Amino acid sequence: MNLKFPKYFLELKDHFLTQEKFDLYIDPETELIKTIPQPENLDPYYESEDYLSHDDNQDSFFARCYNFAKGFNLKSKTSLIRKFAQNGSVLDIGAGVGDLVLALKEAQLSATGFEPSEKARTVARNKGVDLYASLNEVEANSFQLISMYHVLEHVPDVEKQKENILQLLKPNGVLILALPNYESFDAKYYNSYWAGYDVPRHLFHFNKKAVKSIFDKEFEIIKMQPMWFDSLYVSILSSKYKKSAFPFLSGIFIGLFSNLKAIFTNEPSSITYVLKKRF
């Protein structure tokens, strides 16, 4: 696929950490959006105690809310993966601190994970979960299911990542992706303040057409479902970035309204896609 990004989409900042400015450009054919420029070394952009997916910090009120939602989501993810794994082995790419891998093991599934962050792997190891540091260590054609929950938007080469997934999955294997949806109400409401863009940590940005365009040749989308808690989390952060007077309350209101609107538009803040390998 020949991806090109000639059309300007939006200017925004890294509201989370550095306040640096970035631009978004869109590929008109697929509607995939790219962050420009993309830093050669992204590690400094993750170096914050507030980056919760790589940390188990429980101190702040927001962290406690995040971890409450994470617990609910873990049950939902485990249930979905159990349904499609068919007792085969599971690989969680971008496993963070290993919570999903641990939950899958506790559910009697054969699960392992890959996580490039040494800090996150250390936290996972302290929980008794050993994660791969490189996909080169993983045997080809060895997994019935691969999960990538809010990971694909972080990778620098989407096409290369897809090829890696195809090599690792067994024939007729299943890929589960969870991605922010820039067509959602909360994305359009907050615009350049929308936390779902999270530049430059999010290198690419997706809607349903982008996912279908990129994966349709090799995969069939067999299920899509909303991640209802994501709109609340993202909207609270977005209200904070926007310097709203009461960011928690306004974020909850916008997040709930976005969920309500998504019932009719089918455009939730985040979408889980279940894709089946065609061969």
Rank of each mutant, 00 (worst) to 15 (best):
E115S: 05
A103L: 02
L179G: 02
G173A: 09
P171I: 08
I36C: 03
Q225A: 09
F279H: 13
F114P: 01
Q19K: 13
K208T: 14
L91T: 10
K208A: 13
I33E: 10
A69P: 01
F68E: 03
S269T: 14
V199S: 04
L166S: 05
V129N: 00
W194H: 04
S269F: 06
K4N: 12
H150L: 08
P200Y: 12
P6F: 14
S244D: 15
S184E: 03
N57Q: 11
F215W: 10
F206R: 01
L249H: 08
G98V: 10
L237W: 06
L135C: 05
S235M: 06
S258G: 08
E11Y: 05
A140H: 10
S134N: 14
T18A: 10
F246M: 13
F253K: 00
A107N: 11
K276W: 03
A103V: 01
P28A: 11
P44D: 11
E220D: 15
H205D: 04
F114S: 02
S60M: 06
F206S: 05
I81V: 15
G196Q: 09
S250L: 10
L52G: 07
S76N: 11
L131K: 03
I221V: 15
L74A: 03
L24G: 08
L145S: 09
A111R: 08
I165V: 15
E218I: 05
K242A: 15
L249T: 14
K276I: 15
E49S: 13
A187F: 12
Y190C: 01
E139S: 10
S60G: 06
L152I: 12
E163K: 13
E118L: 11
L10P: 02
I176V: 14
Q86S: 12
P247I: 04
S117A: 12
S79R: 13
L169D: 05
K127N: 05
Q108F: 11
I254F: 08
I263V: 13
I236D: 05
I221M: 04
I271P: 09
S270F: 09
P37S: 07
L109R: 00
V174W: 03
A124T: 07
K34R: 11
K4H: 12
I271H: 03
F229P: 00
L249R: 02
Y182M: 00
S79A: 14
W194A: 12
S79C: 03
K21D: 12
V90L: 05
Y8I: 02
G94F: 02
F264C: 01
Y233L: 11
V97H: 00
A85D: 09
A95N: 02
G196S: 10
G173R: 01
G113F: 00
I36P: 00
S53T: 15
N41R: 12
A178D: 07
Y233D: 06
L104P: 03
G251H: 06
